[in-house]
Design a protein around this nucleic acid. Structure first.
Length: 306
DNA sequence: TTAATTTGACCTCT
DNA sequence: AGAGGTCAAATTAA
């Protein structure tokens, strides 16, 4: 352990290095033929990364968040990197996409390591055996395929594949297919995965069945949100301030969809009335809500903003 | 010696 | 035909 602020300094350094890499990539794309979607994605990533950097810097330097929103206890409890789910993974930020593509539910996580060294620790605590690796068209890094070590001995069909994100060696895309049915199914990670895999379209959210739709679950530092979205299209959070006028919900985050529609995530949970400032960055709101009300389940709904 | 990883070949799907 | 996913023999590590 590197007690004190060592870990956070390293996280900050890697976060800033990532920002730099994205800026350079963005610069390079400016000269190309219109690639609005790619540029927009980069901008969203950039904004999100800067936001995280600022928060890390604040926590490292003992700077108060100065927002006036949220309770002091909440901000004091905030920064230590989350310990996501029992395993050795130091996964710092997780985004879950629960999809029903090809009829087989899967869970997609984006795990960011604090440093290149930490990337090896993106282990989820479960035992996997690598059975293949493939270069993916247009991707900088190959995709590695894993299946459960106990596939043959216990007939466990769980698989996953891991791919490093282009332009960001710290970001890993992990897609899980199937839940563990072997002995390690009792492992916290496997149990959570099983739970997530049960979040399928038409189940448990009151959302109507929609042909080809997927359930998108977002998780930031353990706080979860679930919503029904269009078929497995990538979504990004915009960092713009929310504008939930007239709504009863204090927690209201903008979600930018590739269909050019603006969406808003609204919390119907009492936690939404915790006095969180509307103008704060969504991730900060997420963390504020989570740290002040971590034990409560959250329910979210997706609204078109226009 | 056993288990895990690597890697080229093969299969399936679009 | 090409891309993604899986198989299995060869190789490496424990």
């Amino acid at each position: 352990m590197d007690g004190g602020y060592g870990g956070e300094k390293s996280a900050l350094a890697s976060e800033l290095a990532q920002v730099l890499a994205m800026v350079r990539e963005l610069e390079a794309r400016m000269d190309q033929d219109p690639l609005p979607a790619a540029a927009r994605e980069l901008c969203a990533e950039l904004a999100s990364s800067v936001d995280r950097s600022i928060r890390i810097a604040r926590s490292c330097c003992g700077d108060s968040p100065a927002s006036g929103a949220g309770s002091p206890t909440a901000t004091a409890a905030m920064p230590p990197p989350p310990s996501p789910r029992g395993g050795k993974s130091i996964g710092l930020r997780t985004i879950l996409f629960v999809s029903s593509e090809k009829g087989t539910p899967c869970v997609r996580r984006q795990l960011r390591a604090a440093s290149v060294q930490d990337a090896a620790a993106l282990d989820d605590g479960l035992s996997w055996r690598k059975y293949g690796q493939k270069d993916i068209l247009g991707a900088k890094y190959p995709r590695a395929y894993f299946r459960c070590t106990h596939r043959h001995s216990q007939g466990c069909l769980a698989t996953k594949h891991v791919q490093r994100a282009d332009g960001d060696p710290l970001l890993h895309d992990v897609v899980y297919h199937g839940a563990h049915t072997c002995a390690q199914a009792a492992h916290p990670s496997a149990q959570q995965l099983r739970q997530e895999l049960q979040l399928q379209p038409g189940h448990g959210h009151g959302a109507q069945e929609d042909q080809g739709a997927s359930l998108l679950a977002l998780e930031t530092e353990g706080l979860r949100a679930g919503l029904l979205v269009e078929p497995m299209t990538p979504y990004w959070f915009a960092s713009a301030a929310a504008a939930g006028d007239g709504a009863d919900f204090a927690g209201c985050f903008p979600l930018l969809s590739p269909t050019a529609l603006d969406w808003q995530l609204r919390s119907s949970h009492p936690a939404g009335s915790l006095g969180v400032g509307i103008g704060m960055e969504f991730e900060t709101q997420f963390e504020e809500l989570f740290t002040t009300n971590a034990t409560e389940p959250f329910q979210w709904d997706l609204y078109a903003a226009n």
